[in-house]
Nucleic acid binder design. Structure first.
Length: 501
RNA sequence: GGCGACGUAGCUCAGCAGGUGAGAGCGCUCGACUCAUAAUCGAGAGGUCGACAGUUCGAUUCUGUCCGUCGCUACCA
């Protein structure tokens, strides 16, 4: 059975979950659900990143331990994902023992292989910040936050020999264009490498909230080098070599463009340094902007998923973010735009189609859904849309996949309008039209289920089918003619009530 | 400064390995229908495909320059 391992970044617990975090997680969830429909053995991972100076400081400020601080925020992410119907198979936290073991194992390997060495880091240090600054960050030679003079400090660090991997990284980019997508993001990664790579400091002695360096316990690993390894941890690195060997070659990482450098350059190099041959596929998307501006704490324009779920429902929320933004470029979110799309795609097209079909079946077919005809003109529409949708999911383009799926819905509304079954006498001709419409609903429900699992379960049930679309297997289930007929159609309230602007 | 991306209907975008009259969705106008969530269907208006120059029989599609937006990256007296 094919395997599919997809990850989101692990989110740093210094920030509460917002629609940007949720966007990546949602893409991962939809992809995982699509692959489950394909029958792939699927593993979907998300989690939280919990080490580092910022967490330690926040904890100090709140008068609690770093772990307590991490517990609190990590829990908020788990709650958010539960709210959004996220079907992750695991939730990893970097504070877990399994992860410490993996980090120490992987970096020990890199050390043993000669890619980690002891050196001195010299930097401009602000005592109040307990942190280093680049010269360019300083304001008049002083700390930008405290306005106090910085001092030059020298710290013993371990360095990762990143500079040794430039050629191999470039060769990888070139040999396998699919390694990083979209193309533009791969070019960006290549650009970073071509600029010249310097070795990077990967340990700290000034803080203790992290994973200890195994060969020198006075150091902890710098948070980034600890965090990336989570992807390996979760499939058994360091603890279950057999499991790791099975899953690792099928890895796809989803990430936003701000962490491209770490994922597309540092991380593959670290894997090479540790002697791990298979490199992950990387899928990089842009930001969700709000009113054209980046979301940030200081602008106070962060939007929590729960605010929108309240107004649009989980499935309305999920559909919107999967459909409205193409994967790759930045996208602009607006509440008004969300209403427009919800009303158009969900209320007017899908919801209304279900409603009119169930009403006509009640009036003209005694409430019993007829079987479709095999030579329906809609069969070709469905087949073409399925091919497009499948290709789009394979290319990490949920918006394109859903657009293709919705073409079926539009064609079917058109089909009903043309045939006017509500004007027909009950009988074979009317049954044929309504059977076709029900068959469309069956297929659409399967194809849309990665985006809207809850709503699709409801539609599935209303058209008389048992079980759930998630139990279906593609591509067989998308073949025309699967609706058996003779099922009781349930009329219900509108599934997606229109929203007022 | 270097590298790169982008600039196509009111909005969001697709498309073009160069070739008859440029596309989708939404919005708008008109009409049809009334099974349906004031939903649906049809017709239509609306674009010098950023500007200029070049290559070509022919460019929105290729090349160059410029303007504008943005990203990555470097540096500065």
């Amino acid at each position: 059975m094919p395997r599919y391992y997809v990850t989101t970044p692990i989110y740093y617990v210094n920030d509460a979950p917002h629609i940007g975090h949720a966007y990546t997680t949602l893409i991962g969830d939809a992809l995982a659900r699509w692959h489950r429909l394909l029958g792939d053995d699927t593993f979907f991972l998300t989690g939280t990143d919990e080490h580092g100076l910022k967490i330690q400081r926040t904890a100090d400020a709140n008068g609690i331990t770093p772990l307590e601080q991490a517990d609190r925020t990590s829990e908020r992410f788990r709650e958010a994902w539960k709210l959004l119907d996220i079907s992750n198979d695991d939730f990893i936290r970097t504070t877990e023992p399994r992860h410490h073991l993996a980090v120490q194992t992987l970096l020990q390997k890199a050390y043993d292989n000669g890619y980690v060495y002891r050196g001195t880091y010299e930097g401009l240090y602000c005592v109040a910040c307990e942190g280093y600054y680049n010269e360019s960050d300083l304001v008049d030679g002083r700390c930008p936050i405290h306005k106090t003079p910085v001092e030059t400090l020298v710290e013993e660090n371990y360095f990762f020999r990143l500079s040794a991997f430039a050629d191999r990284l470039l060769a990888w980019f070139e040999a396998d264009p699919d390694c990083i997508q979209p193309d533009g993001k791969r070019n960006e990664a290549a650009g970073i490498v071509r600029q010249g790579l310097e070795d990077v400091s990967i340990s700290r002695t000034s803080i203790s909230w992290g994973v200890p360096v195994p060969w020198d316990p006075g150091h902890v690993f710098y948070v980034w080098y600890d965090a990336l390894i989570n992807y390996a941890t979760a499939v058994g690195y360091g603890s279950d070599p057999e499991r790791f060997a099975e899953w690792w070659p099928e890895t796809t990482h989803l990430l936003a463009k701000d962490i491209l450098r770490f994922h597309c350059v540092y991380w593959p190099a670290m894997l090479m340094a540790a002697g791990i041959e298979n490199l992950p596929k990387l899928r990089v998307h842009g930001f969700l902007l709000v009113g054209g501006e980046k979301m940030s704490k200081t602008r106070l324009n962060q939007i929590a998923p729960s605010d929108l779920v309240e107004d649009f429902g989980v499935d309305g929320y999920r559909y919107h973010f999967l459909r409205d933004n193409s994967f790759g470029p930045d996208g602009d979110f607006s509440y008004e735009g969300m209403i427009v799309r919800y009303n158009s795609d969900l209320a007017n097209n899908l919801g209304n189609l279900l409603q009119r079909v169930s009403t006509v079946v009640a009036k003209k077919c005694a409430g019993i859904g007829p079987a479709p005809r095999m030579d329906s003109p809609l069969a070709g529409v469905v087949a073409a849309a399925y091919n497009d949708a499948a290709a789009a999911w394979a290319n990490t383009q949920p918006s394109v996949a859903l657009e293709a799926t919705w073409r079926i819905i539009r064609e079917t509304n058109d089909y009903l309008q043309t045939n006017e079954p509500w004007k027909m006498e009950p009988g074979p001709e009317c049954d044929a039209v309504m059977g076709d419409a029900l068959e469309v609903l069956r297929v659409v429900t399967i194809l849309a289920s990665p985006a809207m699992p809850g709503a699709c379960d409801v539609i599935w049930r209303r058209i008389g089918l048992s079980g759930s679309p998630r139990d279906e297997r593609l591509p067989a289930a998308a073949a025309w003619g699967g609706y058996p007929g003779g099922l009781v159609i349930e009329a219900g309230d509108p599934l997606f009530p229109r929203r007022k602007a």
